[in-house]
Amino acid sequence: MSLAELLGDALLVAGAAFFFAGTVGLLRFPDVYTRLHALAKADNLGLGLIVLGLLLHAPGWATGIKLVLIWLLALAASATVGFLIARRARRHGIAPWRAGDGE
């Protein structure tokens, strides 16, 4: 097994770990705004690391560009949808959780 493949595998595992952290955040965070933080950041980083890991296994430029494109699309989608959801939630008067409210 070459060094690049080993590094790729390590990146894949790290990516999955961030997805796990995102899911834990989704389960534990108290309100919709903080859950959006968890999904927008941890999951996108997880996807980014997985894309990077697969790039090290990837057989060629076309596949590589496609992988990066998937990540960019996912980034744009999360940023836009996260913004829209947060805006809607605030306009509908969903109160943010404050420290000291208790879960």
């Binding site: 919709v32 996807l47 998937i70």
Partner: peptide, 19 residues
Amino acid sequence: ADRLLAALLFGTTGSAILL
């Protein structure tokens, strides 16, 4: 708003699974 998070979930986790 919490239900809408499903869209985000599939965008990232779903495409990671497919990759």
